[in-house]
Design a protein around this nucleic acid. Structure first.
Lengths: 178, 178
DNA sequence: ACAACCATGTAAGTAGTTACATGATTTA
DNA sequence: TAAATCATGTAACTACTTACATGGTTGT
């Protein structure tokens, strides 16, 4: 259950409203834990119910911004959750399923989609490298900064691996069946 | 929706029963698309309903093996699905969320869990390398064999990346907070 | 014939997805 | 003041998870 804790983390870094959170998820946190605005609003309500966050001013109905901030109980919960042992989630990689299916019913037009995905991964890599270049301080700064840079570098490595893999896949798929 | 197509692929490779499928998922296909036996039985019922597979003999109640095989309509469906454009699924990496949380509420005991996970990834890497060593034919064989080897090599690269990443994370986490 | 196990299945609950709705605020 | 957009929310659905149940088979 990472979403509530991703929200707590984001709100500790900077208290804000649901829609602002959704924006920040689109831009940074969501690169590693995606969430839609519906999930975010539902989860914020649960966090408030649990007494982990409080919403500051209006308390009035729809259409008004409600800024949330983390309560001590929420920070405490986050701290405990971080160190809880947790097994890696079971893999679920759709492209691998497709490749294995291609192996038994192919050839198909799969190479076209891999080419398209290759471009998407190149774009994402460029985005991450941009962030890294713009914020050189991350590399040599505090423990906190170095941890944030570590997460960013994981994204870079991951995208690099995908690009490399896509190229290998295209090479094999372009062979004529023997 | 990959599970039905993962099942079709497995059943084309070798028709078998639900429990045998569950075993094969634990041993090979499931390395890339995990599924429990409950999911498998439910999905097999749907596949039969859709006319993509048929179960051969007993048709009688519980406790008897029911062997499934893929019908032409199922093979056709699989062929179409393989080439359908499909965006990469949004990332959801719990460890990254933990690391970002550690950056704002740490230090915590997170390094202990990363050490534990490091061992798990080393085991999985060894497993994959074993499979690769035992089946050298995959590298140089037919198009089909080379595709299967490609998927295996993706697993090896992925685990290697995780191991490398875990070591980097441990290094930063072991620093004293400044 | 009894216990242990194997194969299949049911039920309840959770996280995430997709589509839509409503109240405020800004802009033409 | 009407239209567009922003912020918050509801509802229905799907995939996956966890826990449990039942009918056969096998071994002693």
């Amino acid at each position: 259950m990472s979403l509530p804790h991703a929200l707590l983390t984001a709100l500790i870094e900077q208290p804000c409203s649901g829609s602002e959170l959704a924006g920040r998820f689109d831009r940074s946190i969501g690169y590693f834990w995606h969430a839609t605005h519906q999930q975010i609003y539902r989860e914020l309500a649960r966090l408030e119910e649990a007494g982990w966050v409080e919403s500051l001013p209006p308390e009035s109905g729809r259409g008004r911004k409600r800024v949330y901030q983390v309560l001590p109980a929420g920070r405490n919960e986050l701290k405990h959750w971080v160190a809880e042992p947790q097994d890696p989630k079971p893999q679920r990689d759709e492209l691998m399923v497709r490749l294995r299916a291609e192996a038994v019913v192919g050839p198909t037009g799969l190479h076209k989609d891999i080419q398209r995905r290759l471009e998407l991964h190149k774009q994402k890599l460029a985005l991450y490298q941009n962030i890294e270049a713009r914020d050189q301080a991350l590399k040599t700064g505090s423990r906190k900064a170095r941890l944030q840079h570590l997460v960013l570098s994981a994204g870079i490595l991951q995208e690099t691996l995908w690009i490399d893999f896509s190229l290998k896949a295209l090479k094999i798929l372009s062979e004529k069946p023997s």
